[in-house]
């Protein structure tokens, strides 16, 4: 496998042929923000939060192959603003009430907002959707008011669990994550599915019942550091 080097924000890093910009950056300890991408799932490139500039073009780092000698911009004020706008639009589209959400502190959307310095409510008017909570399954609930349509549950269910519990329905602004049955109880979803595991849903949409607020404040994932801190710590190892 051919090895080569390219730069991210002027820092030269190693890469191998077939790696995406994000994969190479992760190995080098450089964090590129992302929401729809997740380790162990195929790349989708839909949330665009990982947008970087490569050769003057805006590309999603999770799908764009790394190339020898490429000059990539990641942490620039312009990209920071674009990413913050994208995250703000996700807040505007859903009902993300962090103070009462059991995902708070473990939520990647909330953590991304902190990382991107979203220090005030979104400037976009809230759409305030009213989507019924599906608690029909004995062990799992679904609060679609919090869904950001990242599709991680879809890929996890289809590619890892081999089930297809979740799938996209509709087009454009109307596209949303649907189920293979009328409600969750009608699907073959199980608590042991990878799609249901706490790491797959980045927000508080897929709820494992009776867990709630069992993890005390101070011990939640992002109480330990900003999102991406584990990747960035590799750089200093």
């Amino acid at each position: 496998m051919t090895a080569f080097r390219f730069t991210i924000d002027g820092v030269e890093i190693d890469a191998r042929e077939g790696q995406t910009i994000m994969e190479a950056a992760d190995e080098a300890g450089i964090y590129i923000p992302r929401l729809c991408d997740h380790e162990g799932l195929r790349h989708q490139g839909s949330c665009r939060v990982c947008t970087v500039k490569a050769g003057g073009r805006s590309v999603s780092a999770c799908t764009q192959p790394a190339a020898a000698g490429q000059e990539v911009e990641n942490e620039t004020p312009h990209l920071g603003k674009l990413r913050r706008d994208l995250v703000e639009m996700l807040f505007h589209e859903g009902n993300h009430l962090c103070p009462i959400c059991e995902a708070s502190g473990n939520c990647e959307l909330q953590a991304m907002a902190y990382r991107l310095d979203m220090t005030a409510p979104t400037k976009f008017p809230y759409l305030e959707p009213c989507r019924a909570l599906d608690a029909s399954h004995p062990d799992i609930a679904l609060d679609r008011n919090r869904c950001i349509s990242c599709g991680r549950c879809i890929r996890a269910s289809q590619d890892v669990d081999g089930k297809g519990v979740f799938g996209y329905v509709g087009r454009g602004i109307h596209r949303h994550v649907g189920l293979s049955a009328e409600d969750l109880a009608g699907t073959d979803a199980k608590l042991a599915d990878f799609a249901i595991s706490p790491e797959v849903c980045p927000v508080g949409c897929i709820i494992r019942k009776r867990v709630g607020f069992a993890t005390p404040i101070g011990e939640r994932e992002f109480d330990k550091g900003l999102i991406g801190h584990e990747i960035e710590e590799r750089r200093h190892e």
Partner: peptide, 13 residues
Amino acid sequence: GRLLWEVPVIVQR
């Protein structure tokens, strides 16, 4: 309509 384990956190508001 909310889930029972959410209640102590919601109603304290």
